[in-house]
Design a protein around this nucleic acid. Structure first.
Length: 388
DNA sequence: TAGGCCATCTGGTCCT
DNA sequence: AGGACCAGATGGCCTA
């Protein structure tokens, strides 16, 4: 469920009504706390919780050396820690004399309170070996699980609007971009209208880091500096906002004024950096989407549909410089033929991991943009999700 | 060198 | 009991 402005306004109008009730409740709570602290009969109980908290803190502050020592000891500690956690978290009601006298043999146990819970079973060599095997199997499973998760993320990277084989979006940026993409598509479905490019990119880039914003904007053939600075005078809202502009953009305009993005003294700064030239050449193909990545072997990108034009992946030849350096980008986006940016503004440092920009390498040449698969617009839920 | 991102290990929790 | 999932810790790599 989303909280709209009307909800906020309604709540604000209720404040004079509910405020006295809040004051009364706060006063009652304060009185209750005062009684609690002044009641001597409750003191032992409070001290018990106090010492428990202190124990937790002291254990947390154990030195790293001690922990490493414990870890290296052997897998015996696993059972010990398990029982310790059990006693600390879930066994407050047990009798204090139900302790394990064997615990003293473990590291760092000298000043620890006596343990409660089940007694530790003697670790025979066979049990230790089984425990090690179990742990190794668990580690292998965990690795596999994470690899599966990463492959799923890779698949997701290929279907979000901006994909680069050499400049992978980080996991978190991939998820954010995917979320924004879903939102943008559902917005298109809901309104049934073609959004303007600026608003579309704004939606896609909401919450993304500055470098990723640049990347996406580059994919979309939009000058990120323009689309960000234009909204700043109104506190983060793009003036010509339509349904895509409902979310204030979080970035500071000044961040987009990096030297790389400035025209500087060069009359044609787009040639100042290598990737700018490639970016320009990319635009030479705008409208005839010949720029693409011959290396891209993933599934064919979905057709572009933002303005009603559709295109599939096209194979072209990157500039020799790019090909030589082995950076291959694909631009699965041909619909924004009217979105050619001003040449004087290029994009700042890359947010993706390969750091190509510092080497004056075109960052957008193995990227592709795709817009596909209209999601089922469960609009209210999506709205709620997006506003969280 | 600090910070971001990542892979891996590990122990806890929940479920079958 | 064992597997899946999760989160914290740790160390490596890379970049600004």
């Amino acid at each position: 469920m989303s909280i709209t402005d009307s909800h906020v306004m309604a709540l604000a109008s209720d404040v004079p009504t509910i405020w006295p009730g809040i004051i009364v409740e706060l006063r009652q709570s304060a009185e209750m706390l005062t009684r609690l602290f002044s009641d001597a009969s409750l003191l032992p109980e409070m001290q018990k919780y106090s010492s428990w908290a202190e124990d937790s803190e002291s254990e947390d502050s154990k030195t790293k050396d001690e922990e490493d020592h414990c870890r290296d000891d052997d897998m015996d500690d696993m059972d010990l820690r398990s029982s310790r956690a059990h006693s600390e978290i879930g066994c407050e009601d047990e009798e204090d004399d139900d302790v394990d006298d064997d615990d003293g043999e473990n590291c760092g146990e000298g000043d620890m309170p006596k343990k409660r819970g089940p007694k530790k079973r003697k670790m025979t060599p066979a049990r230790i070996e089984r425990s090690k095997v179990r742990r190794q199997k668990a580690n292998a499973r965990e690795r596999t699980r994470m690899h599966d998760l990463n492959s799923a993320l890779d698949n997701l990277r290929k279907v979000v609007p901006c994909y680069s084989k050499t400049q992978k979006l980080s996991k978190i940026e991939t998820l954010r971009l995917a979320k924004n993409y879903i939102w943008a598509l559902s917005e298109i479905l809901r309104s049934g209208k073609r959004p303007d490019l600026v608003s579309y990119v704004q939606t896609l880039c909401k919450g993304l880091s500055q470098p990723t914003t640049n990347l996406v904007a580059g994919c979309l053939q939009l000058n990120s500096r323009n689309f960000l600075t234009e909204q700043c005078p109104e506190g983060g809202r793009y003036p010509g906002s339509n349904s895509f502009s409902m979310h204030p953009y979080p970035y500071q305009c000044s961040r987009l004024s990096s030297p790389q993005c400035q025209t500087g003294s060069n009359s044609h700064p787009i040639r100042t950096h290598g990737y700018c030239s490639a970016y320009e050449s990319l635009y030479a193909g705008s409208g005839s989407p010949e720029y693409n990545s011959p290396e891209y072997e993933g599934p064919i990108s979905p057709p572009v549909c933002i303005n009603g034009n559709f295109s599939l992946k096209h194979h072209g030849t990157a500039s020799p410089e790019v090909a030589e350096k082995g950076y291959h980008y694909s631009m699965h986006y041909s619909g924004l033929t009217g979105a050619r940016p001003a040449p004087g503004h290029i994009f700042g440092s890359s947010g993706v991991r390969s750091g190509i920009h510092s080497e004056n390498v075109p960052p957008y040449q193995d990227m592709h943009v795709h817009h596909d698969r209209a999601p089922v617009p469960v609009y209210d839920e999506l709205n709620a999700f997006f506003h969280n």
